[in-house]
Computed example of a mutant assay.
Amino acid sequence: MSTSATTRSPVTHVPLSDALLPPVDGSTPPWPGGDETSGGVTLHVRRTPGPPDAESTAVYLHGLGGSATNWTDLAGQLSGYVPGIAVDLPGFGRTEPPDGFDYSMPAHADTAARFIRGLGVGPVHLFGNSMGGAIAVLLAARHPDLVRTLTLISPAMPDLRPFTSRMSDPRLPLAFLPLVGPAVRRRLAQEDVETRVMRLLRLCFAEPDRVPESRRQEAAREFEEREKLVWANPALARSTFGLFRTWLVPRSRSLWTLAPRIEAPALVVWGTADKLVTVRKAPRTARLLPRGRLLVLPRTGHVAQMERPGTVARAVLGMWEEVAAGRW
């Protein structure tokens, strides 16, 4: 493992906690889930138990095409310290989108903010991966009172440079274009589930062959479940457009402009082998966050919380310890 940091702080490393954590073998089943209404918003959530005297709660926001199950292992690692709530954002996982939902990133952020505020648990430790990271940036900038700390894992910060060369399947970028996209998505959907699972793993993981069989089976079941949901594919396509539109807004509303307004201590985690959101954006992201530090992980792809949950958990606990000691 290697670490690096780019930050205004004179500290040039990310502290890793020496706390004892449970082993990670990929066999932990998804945490129990159910629909919950909070702040007038209904989401499907998976709750991780935590100590009854915990001072805060962790809230986890998944990426594009993901779900609350993307946080199973990391939430388990941190469950000895905080209870966790992993949400399925509208149109993803098992959350049915409300009528008229526009799938913009501000709409997703507003939904998550309303849900968190309705919980009445005070400021939370907010986590976001990929699209969920972009949503977390918006939420933290607009609702600072809701966020105790911020952990961004490969957040989808604006980048208009071509990235198709990093994708193992050249059809994937075409799947979200306005005219040809629906036809491409239909052809991809006709492939067997195992083929689609392996494509997803090769795209998101640096070492897909090391993903446990239990996790592959979970991904296959999720593919099969989403095929039965009439709103799943439209939600994916429209959220993809919503994310791209966020990259094209005027500078005054750009995520790059919002990041310096975030007051919370922030940890940015990136894998060097990320095929979806280039690690080249990592230093700038951490530098713009006033209290941001950067952890770069080798041999790690787009979902570090799934590929290196133990290392990410130690970095998060290290941040929490440093914040409590007034050193972050």
Rank of each mutant, 00 (worst) to 15 (best):
R196G: 06
S67E: 13
E36L: 15
S165L: 09
W328R: 09
F205C: 08
V184H: 04
R46S: 10
A68H: 07
T37G: 08
R284I: 04
D110V: 06
R199C: 03
L288G: 01
E218H: 14
L119V: 07
R287P: 00
D35P: 09
A235D: 06
R47P: 06
A19P: 06
R238N: 10
V323T: 12
Q77H: 14
F101M: 05
M105H: 01
L255I: 10
M131I: 00
V24F: 08
L295T: 03
S104E: 00
A206V: 00
L248F: 05
S4T: 14
V277D: 02
N70G: 13
G76C: 14
V24A: 11
L20H: 11
T6H: 11
T149R: 09
R202I: 01
D209N: 04
G242Y: 02
S67G: 15
V296I: 14
P30Q: 12
A86N: 04
R187C: 00
L317C: 11
L78A: 12
A156E: 03
T48L: 15
R291D: 05
R186Y: 04
T72V: 15
L152D: 04
A107T: 00
S254R: 06
P23I: 03
R293L: 03
A259N: 00
A219G: 06
V45Q: 02
V41R: 11
T240H: 15
V296R: 06
W320Y: 12
F241W: 13
R199W: 07
R46Y: 08
P97K: 05
G318A: 09
P51K: 03
A315I: 10
T95H: 07
C204L: 14
D274S: 02
A273H: 09
P170Y: 07
T3W: 13
S104D: 00
T69M: 14
A75E: 15
D209Y: 04
G80M: 14
L288N: 05
A324K: 12
A175N: 07
Q217V: 15
P234D: 08
A5I: 01
S239Y: 07
P106H: 02
T72K: 08
A112C: 10
E36C: 09
R245M: 05
V147P: 00
W247I: 11
E263Y: 00
E194H: 13
R161V: 06
R253P: 00
G63Y: 08
T37S: 15
T164S: 13
P15N: 09
P52L: 09
V279C: 10
G326L: 12
I116Q: 03
L177V: 12
T285G: 03
D102H: 01
M1T: 10
V296L: 12
A75V: 12
G133P: 01
P144F: 06
V180D: 05
G63M: 10
G326C: 12
A58V: 14
L146T: 09
E263A: 13
T7V: 01
L172G: 00
G91N: 08
T72H: 10
N70R: 06
P30S: 13
A5F: 01
Y103R: 02
S254Q: 11
R299D: 10
G39M: 08
A107E: 01
P49H: 15
P51I: 02
P309Q: 12
D99A: 14
D35N: 11
R161F: 02
D35E: 14
A189T: 09
E55S: 15
H125N: 11
F205M: 14
L236F: 13
